[in-house]
Amino acid sequence: MADARTADEPTALLRQVAAGDRVAFRRLYDLQAPRLYAVALRITRQGPLAADAVHDAFLQVWRNAGRFDAARGPAEAWLLGLVRYRALDIARRGGREVSADDLDLPEPADDGPDALEVLAGSRDAAALHACLRQLEAERRRLVLLAFVDGLSHSEVAERVGMPLGTVKSWIRRSLQSLRLCLEGAA
């Protein structure tokens, strides 16, 4: 019962936020901020920058909640997108490089197994998990470095010590395989 309620709650809250409900806005923040802050922190790698990303995204939520369309996807994916794009913008503007050397974050695990194990435990993610497993480990790693750590093609190439062209074409082919696999599963 609790599961069903929490799964639907962000969508219901977004509708209330669209109507100007500040209590619902606070509740949405309490529910989602730890997940979204963690994602932003992983991408920007600095607490203040991650906080800026979440701050800006929630202002967008407040202003644009009425534009959320439940037919296009779950509320959580919409919120995730707002925070990720903001965090990526901040990271790309170079903020991340200022003190990437001396931050207190644990060094992100490079490899996929952890991520995959977490995914395996989530029912919604079963198909994505299965399809990621079909990629070669090295290619899967490039996809995760881009999505989870927010690294651009050239940053991925630098991190793994591979030519940029190879990284681009591996990611491109991984995306094609993933889409075909996921659509086959749907």
Partner: peptide, 23 residues
């Protein structure tokens, strides 16, 4: 966005700084 969103679950949640909500 819909396909890849579950990947975000790979990142364990982190409590944001207390003053973020106030901002």
């Amino acid at each position: 966005e819909r396909r890849l969103a579950p990947l975000a679950d790979a990142v364990p949640p982190v409590a944001p700084p207390d003053e973020l909500w106030a901002r």
